[in-house]
Design a protein around this nucleic acid. Structure first.
Lengths: 164, 164
DNA sequence: CGTGTACAATTGAGGGCGCAAACAACTTTA
DNA sequence: TAAAGTTGTTTGCGCCCTCAATTGTACACG
């Protein structure tokens, strides 16, 4: 933030620097989380979060498109993700009677158990990540700010580059 | 803490939910940013940040390992990333006289220009992303919290899963 | 009732990146 | 100064994911 020899206007925009750094830190943390989860429970981070999304959903099931939206993946990504979970018996397919295009991803009991087994350690990992660096007060404040940020809609991105 | 139909203790840990959501939002934003950047300037997000790291570095050059650390990539990832940038003439190789193992990544003038051309729009995109949802005050607070979070060191992850 | 459009899901191709192994060049130890 | 360890870089392999194209279904509307 102090004057620098190289004139890059990044210095004038703390939010940019902070967000960029956060993005990196998050990516690193996600990798660490994922490999830890995989070693301990045979689930990748996306596997885990897919299971969690289903567990939280009504009837423990979700349309594949909706799951994609929640995980911020493309439908094809979800197809491949679920391939693995279906093969492992953690998720089943279920059809929709009123609309044959739709396939539900349905959490199985085995899936719920696997999720439950993994959740405590995994959430502990995440909390530890934060508590390593933030006080409780900071943590609450941050959590609130993050809630604001984590909605959908990234229309702003396209505009600023003035592209087509 | 409150009673729920499905007993998942996630509800008791706002930070976990918030961070998880943030991770997704970040991933989505990064993709949007990257493709916008690519459409407008032929650079991926990592390309851009590699150039920026070099531009900020003393002598506009960095050891490949150091670049890897900054970008939170493995050395092999950096090798591949720089392949592209070298082919485009934005970065050059430079050897270290005192230690022949080391190869520097050296920003070229063309690279600096390309970075400069892209930076305004790109930073605008990032700011827009935040300003779409946060007030100025919130933004400053968040930026401060993020600075705290974005340091290295993810030792905590390994511990919480009690794995080997 | 056929036709055009919208939507859900899948498939093939390709890119980015990590992991592990290999290699080169230092450094340490003896 | 030979042997063993450390560090920087690259390469082979494979995973995960996106993009574009395809198929199958639903719902217009003339």
């Amino acid at each position: 933030m102090r004057p620098q020899a190289f004139t890059r206007h990044t210095a004038a925009r703390p939010a940019v620097r902070a967000w960029t750094a956060l993005l990196r830190a998050n990516a690193g943390a996600a990798r660490a989380l994922s490999s830890s989860l995989e070693a301990a429970h045979g689930l990748t981070l996306n596997d885990y979060e897919a299971l969690q999304s289903l567990a939280d959903a009504e009837g423990r099931r979700l349309k594949r498109v909706d799951l994609a939206r929640r995980l911020v993946l493309t439908p094809s990504g979800v197809t491949r993700l679920l391939e693995g979970l279906e093969a492992a018996g953690l998720v089943e397919r279920a059809t929709c009677e009123s609309d044959l295009r739709i396939t539900y991803a349905q959490l199985t009991d085995a899936g719920a158990e696997r999720l439950e087994a993994a959740s405590c350690g995994h959430e502990g990992s995440i909390c530890a990540l934060f508590e390593e660096r933030l006080s409780d007060d900071e943590l609450v404040a941050l959590a609130e700010a993050l809630e604001l940020l984590s909605g959908p809609g990234d229309a702003a991105v396209a505009r600023a580059n003035g592209f087509g």
